[in-house]
Amino acid sequence: MSFVKLTASALAITAVGATAASARDQVQVAGSSTVLPYASIVAEAFGENFDFPTPVVESGGSSAGLKRFCEGVGENTIDVANASRKIKDKEIAKCADAGVKDIIEVRIGYDGIVFASQLNGPDFGAFEPADIYNALGAQVMVDGKLVDNTFSKWNEFNADLPDVDIAAFIPGTKHGTREVFEVKVMEAGCKATGAYDVFLAAAEGDSDKAKKKAAKKMCYKVRTDGTSVDIDGDYTETLASISSNKDGIGIFGLAFYENNTDTLQVATMSGIAPSTETIATGEYPVSRPLYFYIKKAHIGVIPGLKEYAEFFVADEIAGPDGPLSEYGLVADPELAATQASIAAEETMK
């Protein structure tokens, strides 16, 4: 019987504790799994250098993070959302409905997206966006006509590519990376092969804009016969798929590739090899900015929030020689402007 009493008292103590500790004293962050490594590096250094507790950083994807961000204002909502894309107007409206009106946008730098294959597999060497589109697009141009994609080997449409079966592992649709892949690679390839013009001519819509949008949507369609596999998990899952398929090609973030150079080799895109330098200069075409968003209403309420944001974009962290660029982030050339906007707590319009 005594354990019943013990339980009752223990539960009472925790209940009292729960009310006492409801004032949260550490920053809560959630969002993009691409930003997570950078955020965790900053959070760790922040905990080391400040008297504030180390922030908690969760992943889950850009959209999921922004959704939680827009749940409202208060201690049981997150303070910062990481995103590998810009916040959408729809999400801003949703935030405003829930009372999250003042949002500070912070761009931390750029991330490159690379096409890599197994080190002891065939050397793909150089890709053009057109090659990727021919390999993965649902409908491709053959002899000036639009047909369903039946290519099974890379050298069928480009003699420079190796004579191996097409097998691609691309990020699933819930990833921000997929969007960049569609816009920067599939769309460019679609236009280069001429498929876009055919789609545009056949597109239905009220205005030119609607037609273009419909044509682009057709460009983004990936073939569904099993040659292209959507990976909904993380890059480690893509890596596992590549490891078991010597001819496979996968899409990775630059930082992930640079940490696994012992098993992966990278192909160039439009003749440019991916590196922090070529991405910073904009020569390497497939890159995207990374962001995080702060609730202004939480600054001053959650201790250390503003300091965390300032620390994140400080020169010694996010600058070209900082630990973030060492890990694979491409430093933002306009970092000074970002620092100033955080100091002034400038919100989005």
Binding site: G17, Q26, A30, T54, V56, V57
Partner: peptide
């Protein structure tokens, strides 16, 4: 419930901290 991610807290100080800190 947010228990997966980067949560590098120091060992919690005391019993109540242990139950309530991330």
């Amino acid at each position: 419930i947010g228990m997966v991610g980067y949560i590098a807290s120091n060992p919690p100080e005391g019993l109540i901290e242990g139950f309530l800190s991330p």
